[in-house]
Design a binder for these strands. Structure first.
Lengths: 343, 343
DNA sequence: TGTTAGCACTCAAGGTGAATGAGTGCTAAA
DNA sequence: TTTAGCACTCATTCACCTTGAGTGCTAACA
């Protein structure tokens, strides 16, 4: 069967109506509210066709039609028209991000909050599974006579620190000396390149600090080897305002999923490319999320990147959500000092 | 009216039964299951007394009785007997905390997870509103020719860092020199004591670094002045498993409350003293939480402290929750290296 | 040939009323 | 002081009916 313009127009009207009302849409209301020059009977015929083609579904014989995932997909890809964010909405998002934000975590948290408040859905975000790569610099900072602070910066600009206790007394100058030595020998190397031989070389030269050096190496191993994913969810309660989750069991499934950071971090990197992606219902690899859609923006800021997006029912206002994420994208791309960012 | 032993026994039985079943408790079931040598009629009389005294309430005339907040209070203070954690439960909590954990945040997150999994309620935790007090040490670490990392450690051992860009080129030695100078003049001072005069003194001596010094001072002001509260909630979905929240509206109220870190951080420090506290229903200062109880453990680890606890319905298994928190307390108090902890 | 009016049919949702049963308070007897 | 008995209350459940939104099909119409 062919998909004529009229069918498209009807499908679009049905989806818009359903997004708004969450009620199955009948032929009569489409005829009245969207296409007054056609009768409900005609619409009915077209709807039957659309159902046969897989774009619509019917909960039961005497109910109206609801869009199928395939219907939403067509809508998102070619039917919907761009939502224009209101001035208010833009200003709101901007103010949230405008403050000079030093840490990526904080920036993303703010962005997620802004998204939640503009879209009224739930937002999720994560910093991705970056291999931390090379050791860029290791600093040892004197704190007290037997206590120093190790600070490690990776190639990506990610910074980690740890306080360690030392067997021997150490002072500020010695700490500095040790840092210099460490950097001379190890800076710029990957975990594989930091061999026992090199470490022993350092140990030989600074024998009295053997125990600190061991702790430093442990620390490097942990940080460079680790796959840290910081996942964050904002506004999950919003889901409960939606009629699709007035059934508490359904709501529980999704909330459970959102609360479990491990499963959540598995789903997010499924879409690899940068940019904005829409994942609808069953396209979602996780079983419990088949009733949900996700709109995801994979960002890249300097050398680190991650995902931020919105989770909602398949009956989500895609147009608005995509607009919000596009705006966010433009804001983040315009950010000065992209490498001035830490983990 | 006097509160005899028999009344206490009956009240205790009612509360235990209600905690278990969440259904109003009738005289007959008490007579059968808890006190077989008394008839239901006798129990009924006693229950009428207990209601008059304020320990019980009746949803409607033909229903059983449910405990009032006052009843729970008496139960917690003098009726309940200690729950003994099972070996399994203890081992579970221990393994979660046993791994060598360097950061307070991580430790507390693990502890909260353990609490949730043992009690099946929701756990909340926060690091408290510590005034960061004195500047203990400020380090400047060279990163790139125009980029340095500032690291600030406060008296409490809390550590913060920030990357700043410099107008003039700066190298590793210069950074070290600047750190030393800064520490010589400002270490050990409170925010009030760091006067403009002192800062100008440093600037005069190291004129070429004027812009970095300004940024350093900004950073100090922010960190020492700030009231950072890190709030964390774990297992809020568990609430939805409870019959009291099968009504989605009630659930929404509480979840909303738990999701809002600002309001949440207002409630936690209400109880100031260290140790374990039980806050029941209306004792809770926040309106939306009147149907909830909170069991809170205010910990102190070295120089920092905070709260961790469990949120549940007033019909919470206080005995078990208190036992779990007491176990947690014992574990945290036995922790080695209490000052080896960072924020 | 495409469109429309009309009609019989389906089915979820909402309301009514009776039956059920858990629980109470009161009274009188043990 | 305790208990058995009884009348009474009230939430819950279920069957039953009504209502109304919506459909598919057919026949008439442009």
């Amino acid at each position: 069967m062919q998909m004529g313009d009229r069918k498209k127009k009807i499908l679009k009207a049905i989806i818009q109506d359903y997004i708004e009302t969450a009620e199955p849409v009948g032929s009569r209301s489409i005829a009245k509210r969207y296409i007054p020059n056609l009768s409900s009977a005609t619409i009915r015929n077209e709807m039957a066709d659309l159902e046969e083609m897989g774009y619509l579904a019917q909960p039961h014989t005497s109910a109206g039609r609801i869009p199928s995932d395939m219907g939403y997909r067509l809508f998102v890809d070619s039917l919907m028209r761009k939502y224009a964010l209101s001035m208010q909405e833009m200003v709101h998002m901007q103010t949230v991000m405008e403050e000079k934000i030093q840490e990526l975590d904080v920036l993303i948290e703010r962005a997620a909050r802004a998204l939640t408040s503009v879209t009224q859905y739930t937002s999720i975000a994560m910093t991705p599974d970056v291999k931390k790569g090379r050791l860029m610099s290791m600093q040892i900072v004197y704190l007290q006579s037997h206590k120093v602070l190790l600070i490690l910066v990776t190639e990506q600009g990610v910074m980690k620190n740890r306080i360690v206790h030392t067997d021997h007394e150490i002072n500020s100058e010695q700490a500095y000396e040790l840092s210099s030595m460490f950097n001379k020998f190890l800076a710029g190397l990957t975990l594989e390149e930091i061999t026992l031989a090199r470490i022993n070389q350092i140990k030989a030269m600074m024998a009295q600090y053997g125990d600190i050096i061991t702790q430093m190496v442990d620390f490097i191993t942990e940080v460079i080897g680790e796959n840290e994913r910081n996942v964050l969810v904002q506004g999950s309660v919003n889901l409960l305002n939606l009629p699709e989750y007035s059934d508490i069991e359904r709501a529980k499934d999704v909330l459970q999923f959102l609360e479990n950071k491990e499963t959540l971090s598995n789903i997010l990197p499924q879409v690899a490319e940068d940019g904005i992606h829409v994942i609808i219902g069953h396209e979602n690899p996780t079983l419990g999320m088949h009733g949900c859609s996700i709109v995801l923006y994979n960002y890249k800021l300097g050398k680190v990147g991650g995902s931020i997006g919105v989770v909602g029912p398949t009956r989500m206002d895609y147009s608005k959500v995509v607009a919000a994420l596009e705006f966010l994208k433009s804001q983040m791309e315009a950010l000065p000092d992209k490498d001035n960012i830490q983990d």
